[in-house]
């Protein structure tokens, strides 16, 4: 049973793609980072529009949250000072991004609107018996029963990731410090 995408979903899709392109094509790492944040945010909105509110919320929380960290990290790495970022005025990319942002704003409002309009929809988010087969309660039930072992494995995966980041970062920082000391 296929459902043809609504106009909203077309719009969100286009915005996502446009922002994704900006990530690659943007010349400034800051532009890339912010566009990435936007891409992930609009992906979250797509989830909302198909009815996967939990995943949408998780997407925005985690990705947008994490990307903010990435943004700060990039700024730190490149040691950007605000005065170094030039604002060239009438460059085409700014027109393009203005249009994209406007569309984005519209799409964001439109996708969240049904949820806001129908506050009774909070019940769909899993606080009653009827909603047990979707939403966060159902997901956590699955995680703690059927997917128990992968769940535990994920914990170890996170440990590995943390360890990895620390180890790789530590070595970099150590050698950089050595280099700067030698200078």
């Amino acid at each position: 049973m296929t459902v043809s995408p609504t106009f909203l979903q077309w719009l969100l899709g286009a915005v996502t793609l446009a922002l994704a392109l900006l990530v690659i094509l943007g010349r400034n790492p800051v532009v890339s980072a912010i566009s990435l944040m936007g891409t992930l945010f609009s992906t979250g909105l797509i989830f909302f529009s198909v009815g996967a509110q939990f995943v949408g919320a998780v997407q925005i929380l985690i990705y947008a949250g994490a990307i903010s960290v990435l943004f700060i990290f990039v700024v730190m790495l490149l040691d950007l000072r605000p005065t170094r970022v030039r604002i060239p005025g009438r460059a085409p990319v700014y027109v393009f991004s203005f249009v994209v942002c406007a569309l984005f704003f519209v799409a964001a409002i439109l996708s969240v609107l049904p949820v806001l309009r129908n506050l009774g929809a909070i019940e769909i988010l899993g606080l009653s018996e009827a909603g047990l087969d979707q939403g966060p309660v159902a997901i956590s039930m699955q995680l703690l029963s059927k997917y128990m072992i992968p769940f535990q494995a994920t914990a170890l995966l996170l440990l590995a990731a943390v360890m990895g980041v620390v180890v790789l970062g530590k070595k970099n920082m150590l050698s950089e410090r050595k280099q700067s000391e030698q200078k």
């Binding site: 997917y147 992968p150 494995a153 170890l156 995966l157 990895g164 790789l168 070595k171």
Partner: peptide, 24 residues
Amino acid sequence: WVAFFVYLETLAIPGYVIAGLRLR
């Protein structure tokens, strides 16, 4: 497949890290 994917990542990510230990 969910379990499969999680286990696959569990084995792959430490691998990437170890591969990177000798970066220089």
